[in-house]
Amino acid sequence: MLDIFTYPFMIKAFFVAFMIALCAPCIGLPIVLKRFSAIGDATSHSALGGIAFGLLIGINPIIGAVVFSIVAVLSVERLRKAFGTYHEIATVIVMSAGIGLTAVLSAFIKNGSANISSFMFGSIVAISDFELWLSLILCAVVLVMTFLLYKENFAITFDEEAAALSGIPVRLINFIVMLLTAILVSVASRIVGALMISSLLVIPVANAMLISKSYKQTLTLSIVFSEFITLAGLFVSFYMNLRPGGTIVLMGVVILVITAIIKPKK
């Protein structure tokens, strides 16, 4: 047995990382195809605000992150409408609010910098049993909803007008996807890091889009890439004593560059 699995915290980390890597492309694909990749950043920065708030008032930070992330995605949706064709401004405003809130609140937390930092860049050792189960349950919800809404998500991302005409409740499903994004970002903040999770939403999908020949294949390959970079990143970070979030993201970027260079013609 590899010595990495002799540590209970590493087994927990692998469980959670496996689930997050499975979920991230499922949420990332519709977001990327709708050219809405920046929502991951806006949500993750707001999640940090929730983490700081959770640490400050003494509740589990992931719960704080979930609440703040949901408020963030709802705010982005509302602001997007207010700014019309300049709707990308909405993500920047919400992201700024999140990081501002984090900066202010962290000053009031005991060991604020160290605590917040572990959520920014991810930390394997810090996963509690409660967080393990919370993460697994929330990831399961994301997966089930993604599977159930597979055909609806495809139709909406391909042609929103045609989807609405065929009777798909477009606004409801867009709202559900935003909600799932908020949940995933919050759950992933512990292990991958809040500042890294948006990369996990986008990079595996971008990698798959370079070589895939259908929507289904894009989703499948995104999951394969996501699992590979996440699990391999965990191994490398453990043996080389690196931060797991950063290692995972850098591994994703390296593989993306390699794919872009050697990709076969579609």
Partner: peptide, 11 residues
């Protein structure tokens, strides 16, 4: 957009 003809029609 990464979609096949079949996927587009089926939607």
């Amino acid at each position: 957009f990464p979609a096949t003809v079949k996927e587009v029609v089926r939607a």
